[in-house]
Design a protein around this nucleic acid. Sequence first.
DNA 1: ACGTCTTTGATAGTCGCAGACAAACTTATA
DNA 2: TATAAGTTTGTCTGCGACTATCAAAGACGT
Lengths: 337, 337
Amino acid sequence: MSATIKDVALLAGVSTTTVSHVLNKTRFVAKATQERVLQAAEELNYAPSAVARSLKVKNTKSLGMLVTTTLNPFFAELVNEVEKCCYREGYNLVLCNTDGELEKTNSYLRMLTQKRVDGILVMCSAYDDSLFSSLIGQRNLPMVVMDWGPSDDYVDRIQDNSVKGAHLAIQHLIEQGHKRIAYIGGPLEKLPAKQRLDGFIEAMEQANLGVQDDWVIESDFEFEGGKLGMRQLLSCANLPSAVFIGNDAMAMGAMSEAQLSGIKIPQQLSVIGYDNCLYSAYFSPPLTTINQPKEQLAELAISTMIERIENPRQEGRMIMLEPNLVVRSSVAAVLTR
Amino acid sequence: MSATIKDVALLAGVSTTTVSHVLNKTRFVAKATQERVLQAAEELNYAPSAVARSLKVKNTKSLGMLVTTTLNPFFAELVNEVEKCCYREGYNLVLCNTDGELEKTNSYLRMLTQKRVDGILVMCSAYDDSLFSSLIGQRNLPMVVMDWGPSDDYVDRIQDNSVKGAHLAIQHLIEQGHKRIAYIGGPLEKLPAKQRLDGFIEAMEQANLGVQDDWVIESDFEFEGGKLGMRQLLSCANLPSAVFIGNDAMAMGAMSEAQLSGIKIPQQLSVIGYDNCLYSAYFSPPLTTINQPKEQLAELAISTMIERIENPRQEGRMIMLEPNLVVRSSVAAVLTR
DNA sequence: ACGTCTTTGATAGTCGCAGACAAACTTATA
DNA sequence: TATAAGTTTGTCTGCGACTATCAAAGACGT
């Protein structure tokens, strides 16, 4: 099949050791020899086998990433950032969509350990006991969890501080004069969804505003879920003046539904989202939302990962990321009358 | 570090051969022995090293996917489908975003060959000579190209028939009574962009409709590009009654911009997109667009890939996919007066 | 008791590369 | 001239799994 180091050595008239050394620059080799080797390699179109190399050096320079689904733009953007960091650091990224299925997750976990990836990034956002137990089975494998935490000292965690994000959103609405605020959120078994709800309630209470029961709606973080959530909200006897929606995808679905019902945004209904995905600047009207620092998140995840790969014997760390408000045009000021 | 086959053999009191055989079911082994082995493996949390295995069996059960950027929802959806197929077939997917940079592309190509992936899926859509020459350097590696074709008999190609898609779009507009039709497309060095433009012009000519020069705009397939394209279109002296936009991302940007300028869609301006991304059903109004059969595309790519892996010595094939029209609400009928 | 089958297990070589150890050769120094 | 020191390159083993080839043990017939 493809040429091996032996072929190169033969052609260059040196030992395989020498070839290995010039290719990896791992010891001095006379200029002339070096050139002979390089030329032989070139001539044979030689590509060193990373699999043989990995067997020897015990690392693969690849990372696995477990993510619910990249169909969600937020995850897609995050994966994109992660991939960028990986590339920069010389790693490959093995993409694993779990689709929220335990079986797929376990299967991938098995594949990844067999493939001897150097580490696993987890972004599944469900704090699910069964997943947790699958994970701890791999405890020897460096792992950083990006949105929920098995409370365990062996993995690093990065949290997005969704409670704060929700506060920011509600504060903004309140500052714009809103008092009647609804919430459409994600499934509560996902930590960010839960935190955003908690933050919403907390913020409302702090402002002495009531939260009406049928104004808090649990949905699924998807486009369609937003649409359905809005439909449900619109069926309420009285309507809020603003909605805080748990992520931008749902915000899109919700706005579409509301506008289809003839509701003007933001004049009749203000909307604020969460995530600040790329496309939220192109909604009609452009979406005011809470920004998650995705680049920073990816950056941190990878640097933490690499640090842990190089030094596995440290205790799990927990890093908190700060969200911030991005004002666009989907929130209107309420006229005080 | 982690347990090896030897450890398992030792614990089970058998030879490594036996362990290998029971794990791979490659020869009959007494039930009792089998169970001892399995139990030992379990006890040691044994995960066979795929890297050692790969070295011997000469395949890695992983595929590389070269894609411009998964930031574009169309690619994201496609990657998602591809990943699904890979999983089903027992392959891992190594995600490689090229960002359209030749250097990154080459670097990834090198990494992938070194990692000895079993094949490479290419979805870069630029028919760029330099990429082409990088690719043919890897001619021994199974490859399927999903949206443009190095005219070469060594790779398989899947084409989306964008010319036809453009025809479908324009036909639909014409049927709805439109005669004054503009076009905002992608960069012409990308084959689909070129084909969609060609199809647009062809369809217009067949209908004896003129295409006004400043109504065909070349942009970049991104959200912002759509916005800019629309801005440019709106600055024309006279406006069309409909726009065909080269992909859904640009359609989103364009619609946002138009609506910000107070133009009612579809009443004052009809819009038709291309790709039928998940989110296009949630535009305001929901986008009429040309559907690309993404699942089928992924399916075909993977099955073609696997076939070629199993039988590398066949000549390159070319498969054509058929787009279809999805009618939603962004195109209005023109009243004949 | 011996040979022949059948069933099951062991030995050793292989994949391609890295690196510890050491050899060969050159030059400087006593 | 012998020896030390330095420079450059080579030999050989092992990473962890697979697998071809052998070998042992038991069943069976004669």
